[in-house]
Amino acid sequence: MKTIRWFPLILALSATGLTAQTLTEVALPRYGINGNSTALRAPSAAWLTISGLQPNATYRYYVSGDTNVPTGTGAGNYFGINSVANNAGYIQGYTTQKGLGGSLLANDEFAMANRYSEFTTDASGSYSGWFALVPTGNNRFAVGNEVRFGLVFNDGAGGTSVAGNIYTTSTLLMLGPGTAEGANQATFLVGDSLGAPGETMVLLYDNVAGAGRPIWATWVEPDGIADVPSTLWHTNVTAGRWGAYVPNDLANGIRRVEYWDIGSLSLIAAVTDDDGVWTPIPEAPFLTANGDTRFNGGTTTLIGIIAPIPEPSAAALALLGLGVWGLRRKLVR
């Protein structure tokens, strides 16, 4: 199994009742995509661990990105992701407006009014899970900017105002859709897992070993939320597939794809390619790129690759539960 490298950040917060929090970057992507065009937006997911909170407390939060020092409430849209599935699965909804005094993001909704999400800490005051930011047209996400990924949260006791925020030390470089090299431009990539369950998290690397930070972090559709986060996404990222942007000057292309389970935070499987040229998805939008993840097509000539999820090992099945795996596989076929 892949060894995850942990990159801790300690920030002292001035909020009442809070001690210094630690944010650990378990899996933080290197890139995000500028959201000036609503039709071309895409999420950047991250696996983070926050510690130093109140034990066994339920916190309201939302996800933001910021370039300011000191950081504040930031900007950006987000997907709410739970660590325990309910009737909506793990991914609860997508919202363009955020507020701790609003309503809980739930039931696979696409919201355009104030929403927040929740997580519950353990007995030590820590929480580890997946989060997802969608950059917008806000100036913080201008092409070439380095954006810190963060959480804005309440007091853990039902409060409706901001009690604190915490951001990563590492940053996401903002790219723009386009075909040029050397200009922070990127091409949209669609991967076909050939049957991975919807809401399986995906990490993409430019090396077969999975060393360093991932290039992108995303998930397999369906997530149950219709028509989001963009036309480009919901048109091309269909059931069993995932979407990402790849920098046009990424010399190695994508050479490793990892599939992770949200609930158990465990690696299901990984698939690699030695030269970054994969078996292409045999459909019209992807034929020109021919599976080459170094192809510069922007959002007009897309890359489509087949990155099949292997059957999980016995150990993975023990973690995930064979019945759940079998049921969810049926849902995407």
Score class of each variant (00 low, 15 high):
1 M>D: 14
2 K>R: 08
2 K>L: 10
7 F>Y: 13
11 L>A: 14
11 L>Q: 11
12 A>C: 05
13 L>A: 14
15 A>M: 02
15 A>H: 00
21 Q>V: 01
25 E>D: 08
30 R>E: 15
34 N>V: 00
35 G>Y: 00
36 N>M: 03
36 N>Y: 12
39 A>Y: 00
39 A>S: 08
40 L>M: 13
40 L>G: 04
41 R>G: 12
42 A>R: 02
47 W>A: 15
48 L>V: 02
51 S>C: 11
52 G>P: 12
57 A>Y: 05
63 V>C: 15
67 T>C: 09
67 T>P: 03
67 T>R: 11
68 N>K: 14
71 T>N: 11
75 A>K: 05
79 F>W: 15
80 G>I: 05
81 I>C: 10
83 S>T: 03
84 V>S: 15
88 A>K: 01
91 I>K: 05
94 Y>S: 07
97 Q>L: 12
98 K>C: 07
100 L>C: 07
101 G>P: 14
108 D>E: 15
108 D>R: 15
114 N>W: 04
115 R>G: 04
117 S>R: 01
120 T>W: 11
121 T>R: 07
126 S>P: 15
132 A>K: 00
133 L>P: 07
135 P>M: 13
136 T>G: 06
138 N>C: 05
143 V>N: 10
145 N>D: 06
147 V>M: 13
147 V>R: 09
153 F>Q: 01
153 F>R: 00
154 N>G: 12
154 N>R: 04
161 S>V: 09
162 V>D: 11
163 A>L: 07
164 G>T: 01
164 G>H: 08
167 Y>I: 00
171 T>A: 12
171 T>S: 12
171 T>C: 09
174 M>S: 11
176 G>I: 10
183 A>M: 13
186 A>L: 07
190 V>G: 02
191 G>V: 05
192 D>S: 13
195 G>C: 07
197 P>D: 11
198 G>E: 13
198 G>M: 08
200 T>F: 09
201 M>P: 05
201 M>G: 09
208 V>I: 09
213 R>T: 06
232 L>W: 08
232 L>F: 11
233 W>T: 00
234 H>K: 00
239 A>Y: 13
242 W>D: 11
245 Y>P: 02
246 V>A: 13
248 N>R: 01
251 A>K: 04
254 I>C: 03
255 R>M: 07
257 V>A: 10
261 D>E: 12
268 I>R: 13
271 V>L: 12
273 D>C: 08
274 D>E: 12
275 D>Y: 06
276 G>N: 06
277 V>G: 06
280 P>V: 00
280 P>L: 03
282 P>V: 01
283 E>C: 03
286 F>K: 00
288 T>L: 00
292 D>I: 01
293 T>W: 08
293 T>E: 04
305 I>K: 03
306 I>G: 02
312 P>Q: 04
313 S>H: 15
315 A>H: 05
315 A>F: 06
318 A>H: 03
320 L>I: 14
321 G>S: 03
323 G>Y: 05
324 V>Y: 07
325 W>L: 15
326 G>I: 00
332 V>E: 13
